[in-house]
Amino acid sequence: MEWYLPVIWAALIGTAVALYVVLDGFDLGVGILFPFAKEDHERDQIVASIAPFWDGNETWLILGGGGLWVAFPRAYAVIMPAFYLPMIVMLLALVFRGVAFEFRTVANTSKKYWNAAFAGGSIVAALAQGLILGGLVQGVKVENGAFAGGAFDFATPFAALCALGVTAGYALLGATWLVMKTEGAVANRARAHAKPLLGVVLVFMGIVSLWTPLSIPRIAERWFSTPNIFFLWPVPVMTALVAYLAWRWLEAGRDIPPFLAAIALFMLGYLGLAISVFPYLVPPSLTVWQTAAAPASQVFMLIGTVGLLPIILGYIVFVYWLFRGKVREGEGYH
């Protein structure tokens, strides 16, 4: 019990964060690409393609943060202060972007500002999330179980690289989402964006995959020691295969498969990072076991999660099904 409970929780929170990254990833990505839209009706079409979903998507971020507090309070109490500035900037960016959704539909003359807020908020939130990810992978200074570093410890070249990588990745998800969910000029432009974005994302994934084992021996050992390497070699191979398929599907003018491939690519990258970092929740010092909540708390929350998560996933699938199909040119739900 003491051993496997934190592992179950690490898997659950990992799943919540993965769902967040994919789901809010595509709608943040749509926001990142928003400035490329030329006409107002195109912008309405783009926003309409994500409007019924974005709020639910962002809820996974609350579950990720809240879940971390519930299951791993010691990690929560270190990570949040360690990334204080990017965390707050991300939240403020999401505030701007979230209200921009509603405000731009009721605004007249000020609509252009809320368009800018939507795009700007999306870009800043993506960059901040990448900074936090990069900073976390590189490690956090901890003394006596508390954060002991400075306000700008996160600001490293590696974190900057991750920030750009995550932003490009979200943009790829957003572009392939628009390919799937829209038609006309918006879909064509998205298809044209998706290909170079795919290349850029692969470059970033490549650099991160080399940088982390070269700079952190623990990660090199995880991947290249025997017998690990015999189990782990499929991860990069699968990544290459998925990237190739994504390219082919985009070339072939397919609508849905490129989005699925982009998700798969993200999940493989995420899996790669998880393999590099586990069992640390706060590298390089605090593991999932050291940061776990009291078993009674983890069990109490697990009961609810096991019971409620399938219901939640059920009605989320229902909403995606309800708003299935493409948003046509000039069409907006509002």
Binding site: G66, G67, W69, A71, P73, M301
Partner: peptide, 9 residues
């Protein structure tokens, strides 16, 4: 913490 967790769920 669990109260917040249940609120989300």
């Amino acid at each position: 913490g669990p109260a917040i967790g249940y609120e989300v769920l």
